[in-house]
């Protein structure tokens, strides 16, 4: 890269927080998340179930319920203030600038509309044009995501397709209006192992070809290693470590990241114990005052319970939030 315009961030997330407010309690689903994404870059969001990965993605697309979700911070995409978008500008932004792929393609598509109707509605919403043009474009898209005999499949209902094809259709829908940023929320978790790999390979190829920035949520460190340029690790609603994928996975700075790596079965001899992280994540309604990982952390100091650590940058391009960042 020549360090010119291309390396300016496309997406700029600064201090993003999401609280769900109900009468009984406030759930701090995401707290103070900060990260950047350059054009064409793939960021993997890692973290346990409930750590706020999906909520982060939905906040970026303004898909959270307006009344109950209190969003704070700043999100800028291509110079536009995402959190200030309203009305028609917001609707054009959704699907046109940012698109999302969901985890469960069975429930994420309208069961009483055909694949083609979904695609054509999105295309005509964003690009206009006649039905015939939209249909032609829809067939091209199905072809792009390698759905066999797209002229026939375009008239299929979601339940008539296999899981893998459904997810491909979902990808086609996300790509239909040429988004700059693709958000993929565990897009392969619901699929069979072999199909997972095919869909992953497809996504990777399309991302490269179309040069989309991508945020990819996954539980699978192997997947992250495969497709990511950078990873961000979330714990209890906070990004606790962020950096280039190779560096983070090879030499984690945060004890939680280290624990995650150790608890995956990769490269371990069978007689070695799988080191799981003891304990469970905190209640998001009552976060501890200090580092939320401290109660489970083998390396915790008394100081860890005093306040949440600020981001530090022990190495260029790497961020960690830990009072005792692991020595490199």
């Amino acid at each position: 890269m020549d360090g010119g315009i291309a390396s300016l961030p496309l997406l700029h997330v600064d201090g993003l927080s999401v609280d769900f407010v109900t009468r009984e309690a406030t759930v701090h689903a995401v707290s103070d998340a900060t990260f950047n994404l350059k054009p064409g870059e793939v960021l993997c969001l890692l973290g346990e179930s409930g750590s706020g990965k999906s909520v982060t993605l939905r906040a970026l697309m303004r898909l959270l319920p307006e009344k109950r979700a209190r969003i704070a911070g700043k999100v800028t995409l291509g110079g536009r203030d995402v959190l200030a978008l309203q009305g028609n500008a917001l609707r054009s932004f959704r699907g046109g600038t940012v698109a999302m792929i969901f985890q469960e393609p069975m429930t994420a598509l309208d069961p009483v509309y055909t694949i083609g109707q979904h695609l054509m509605e999105a295309i005509r919403r964003h690009k206009g044009g006649s039905r015939a043009e939209a249909r032609k474009r829809a067939i091209e898209l199905l072809d792009l995501v390698k759905i066999p005999s797209p002229e026939r499949r375009i008239d299929a209902y979601p339940h008539e397709l296999s899981g893998g094809l459904r997810q491909r259709a979902m990808i086609a829908l996300a790509l239909s209006c040429g988004p700059q940023l693709l958000l993929a929320d565990e897009p392969t978790t619901a699929l069979d192992a072999t199909v997972q790999i095919q869909v992953l390979v497809l996504l990777r190829r399309l991302q490269k070809e179309l040069g989309m920035s991508t945020i990819f949520v996954t539980h699978d460190l192997g997947v992250a290693a495969e497709i990511a340029d950078r990873v961000a690790v979330m714990y209890a609603g906070r990004i606790i470590e962020e950096g280039p994928v190779d560096d983070v996975l090879r030499a984690p700075l945060h004890p939680y990241t280290a624990g995650l790596l150790a608890s995956t079965v990769h490269d371990q001899s069978p007689d070695q114990d799988i080191a799981a992280i003891p304990g469970s994540p905190p209640d998001l309604r009552r976060l501890p005052p200090g580092c939320s990982f401290a109660p489970r952390c083998a390396k915790a100091l008394p100081a860890c319970n005093d306040g949440f650590p600020h981001p530090t940058y022990p190495v260029a391009d790497r961020m960690v939030r830990c009072w005792r960042a692991l020595p490199l």
Partner: peptide, 9 residues
């Protein structure tokens, strides 16, 4: 949610 994510009004 998908429909909203598609940009539908």
């Amino acid at each position: 949610t998908t429909l909203r994510a598609m940009g539908l009004g």
